[in-house]
């Protein structure tokens, strides 16, 4: 465990806490893409299949349980909670995210480290995580105004993978045979997708103005 990875995990945890805070305090999910939350639930379930088979550390196990349970809880809230579900932007959140699932599944069947069920699922989850934010970014551009908590949620979600890239660079130089191209390439693509969001987020922060994404 190195400081970059720990910072990345904490940033990821903060993004989830910010989202839960928004939904819990405002009892609203306006501006939140249910499709992105569903994709993240799939990402965590397919990536942490080894949750019950391999024990790595208490930290690892606890974080996996937190990520799986929080993502499922958020999807449940937006779908089923009698108050929250009313504020879901159903007509704006129209990204065909199952296409992303299909494309990542095909890619995982072609590009993986080992052809085993767990490895293919792992590669699938890495690819899917890279594009999972797309429905959310599209929704933000369509809805125009971004409320603070939603903006912070997306910001932390993007920042966490950037810390992971530093972690991979660090591990590449500090461990002999650490070469994991699937995660690295996918992580760079994932962070790049946030580039324009980060730009507008920084501008709005600098001008102390409301975050506006060009439609």
């Amino acid at each position: 465990m190195n400081v970059f990875r720990f910072a990345g995990d904490m940033t990821h945890l903060i993004s989830i806490l910010v989202l839960l805070l928004k939904i819990y305090t405002t009892k609203s999910c306006s501006g939140i893409s249910l499709k992105t939350q569903e994709l993240y639930a799939v990402v965590f379930v397919t990536r942490y299949l080894d949750l019950v088979t391999d024990f790595i550390s208490v930290y690892n196990t606890v974080m996996k349980v937190v990520f799986i349970s929080s993502s499922l809880a958020i999807v449940w809230c937006i779908r089923r909670h009698k108050v929250v579900r009313r504020s879901y932007d159903k007509e704006l959140d129209t990204f065909r995210h199952w296409l992303l699932v299909g494309a990542c599944a095909v890619l995982a069947l072609v590009v993986h480290e080992k052809f085993s069920f767990q490895e293919v699922c792992w590669a699938f989850s890495i690819y899917l995580e890279a594009v999972a934010i797309l429905p959310q970014l599209v929704l933000l551009q369509r809805s125009g105004n971004v409320d603070n908590l939603t903006g912070q949620y997306v910001f932390f979600l993007g920042a966490y993978r950037a810390f992971y890239i530093l972690n991979w660079i660090y591990r590449y130089y500090s461990e002999q045979h650490f070469t994991r191209w699937i995660s690295c390439v996918s992580g760079i693509v994932q962070t790049a997708l946030y580039a324009d969001f980060f730009y507008y987020y920084f501008i709005s922060w600098k001008n102390n103005s409301k975050l506006q994404l060009p439609a």
Binding site: D54, I56, K64, F67, F178
Partner: peptide
């Protein structure tokens, strides 16, 4: 040599 696999990452 225990190769710390990436699977120890979240």
């Amino acid at each position: 040599l225990l190769e710390e696999s990436i699977k120890d990452e979240l």
